[in-house]
Amino acid sequence: MVYLTRKIEFSASHLYHNPAFSAEENQRIFGKCNNPHGHGHNYVLEVTVAGEPDPATGMVLDLKELKEILQREVTDRMDHRFLNYEVPELAGQIPTCENIAAVIWRLLEPKIKRGHLNRVRLYETPDLFVDCYGEGNGASGHAGGAR
């Protein structure tokens, strides 16, 4: 098995607010992220696909194809968007790094036709990131599965 990782960046704004909570609760739980005007990040996304290289091409999957999938599914949807209001997949959810990573996993997973999606890692900042694994990937903490 070979693991191929492609990285992209997108910039977007968001805010954390749960209408079921009072204004004070929202402020206490979400702190600065509850600013009603929102704030933004430069997100970095690493997508890892696992598979056996095709003997004819030597590729797990064509990077150009992966690049196009990421452009269509992630960049076109999320780049320079206000995630709360402009990304329907996040409607009704708090756009935390956890929830965005899970949405990205669900968008990408059915589009990867060669190999399979192994890990989605989404950095909100260089010091905060979320790894998303499928049920079968063991979630050992490594793109690559078992140690």
């Binding site: 899970a102 010091d127 905060l128 990131f129 979320v130 998303c132 694994y133 903490g141």
Partner: peptide, 10 residues
């Protein structure tokens, strides 16, 4: 689906 949240400290 399984999620890991990671944070870096110094």
């Amino acid at each position: 689906m399984k999620l890991h949240l990671s944070r870096r400290y110094r």
